[in-house]
Amino acid sequence: MKLNTTANIPDRDGFYQDLIDSQRDMTDEEASLMNCKLVILLANHIGDREALTEAIRLAARTARAAART
């Protein structure tokens, strides 16, 4: 497993607030586009092809499972 799934973000609440605040005045369409940009920028930052695939699989699997319930 290349993907770090242990807690790794300092100032976790601050990060989360940053994320939510940045989209507070956005429409859903604007926020969606921003999320896409965020994924692309973060993926480029990570740059580890295996870790990226693991993250995609994990996110996709859990999104599907959640959408079914």
């Binding site: 969606s32 896409c36 692309i40």
Partner: peptide
């Protein structure tokens, strides 16, 4: 399409 446009804008 959003992902595509995100890449092009970035």
């Amino acid at each position: 399409k959003r992902f595509r446009n995100a890449v092009l804008e970035l």
